[in-house]
Amino acid sequence: MEIEGDVLTDVIKRLRRAEGQIRGIIAMLESGRDCADVVTQLAAVSKALDRAGFKIIATGLRQCVIAEQDGKEPTVDMAQMEKLFLSLA
């Protein structure tokens, strides 16, 4: 599966944002911030990572549907896509 340019840009942007959030969480822990604040930020970064993963999976599924509509053999293994989806769900 090849990730399309605009999707790739969006996923990288999300991952860089998550990277910044993780740095912030580390700083929060090092400065002794309240555990509820830390967990809230952990939940936010977890959601950001999930969204990046689902965006990649959606791209693969879209490629499969387009290939089938064009009468071509899908380059994406649907069983593999299902496993990837379930790994994030």
Rank of each mutant, 00 (worst) to 15 (best):
I22A: 09
D6I: 05
A36H: 13
G60S: 06
E2A: 08
S87E: 08
D34S: 09
L8T: 13
E19C: 06
Q63Y: 04
A44C: 03
R14G: 00
G53F: 03
I26S: 06
R17L: 09
Q69M: 07
A43T: 12
R62L: 07
V11C: 05
I12A: 01
A43Y: 10
D6K: 11
K72P: 08
Q69H: 06
A79F: 10
A79E: 15
V76G: 03
A52W: 05
T75V: 14
D70R: 15
R16I: 02
S87V: 06
M81G: 04
M28W: 04
M78F: 12
A18I: 09
K83R: 11
E19L: 11
T59D: 14
A58E: 13
R62D: 10
S46N: 12
Q21K: 01
T75Q: 07
G20W: 06
I12D: 01
Q21Y: 04
F54H: 02
K83P: 06
G53W: 04
L15I: 12
G32V: 09
F54I: 07
S31N: 08
A27M: 15
M81I: 03
I12C: 00
G24A: 05
A44G: 03
I3F: 06
I12P: 00
D50T: 11
E30W: 12
V45E: 01
L29R: 02
M1G: 12
K13N: 11
Q41S: 02
R62K: 14
T9C: 07
L88I: 12
S31Q: 13
L42K: 03
M1W: 04
L88C: 09
G53Q: 02
V11L: 09
A48P: 00
R62H: 13
P74L: 09
L49V: 15
G32K: 10
K13Q: 11
M81E: 11
R16Q: 08
R17H: 15
G53H: 01
D10Q: 07
V11T: 01
R33C: 05
D6C: 04
L88W: 12
I66D: 13
R23S: 15
D77A: 08
A44Q: 07
I25K: 01
D6W: 06
A89M: 14
S46Y: 05
S87L: 11
E30G: 08
L84W: 08
V39H: 10
L86I: 14
I26E: 14
A48D: 08
D50G: 07
V11H: 03
Q21S: 13
A43H: 11
V11F: 12
I57E: 02
K55I: 08
M28A: 05
E73P: 05
R51L: 08
G5Y: 03
E30P: 02
R33Y: 06
D6L: 13
M1P: 11
S87A: 15
T40H: 06
V38R: 02
K72G: 08
I3R: 05
L29E: 10
P74Q: 07
G5C: 07
R16P: 01
E2T: 14
C64N: 10
D70T: 04
I57K: 03
S46Q: 11
L49G: 02
I56F: 04
S46L: 08
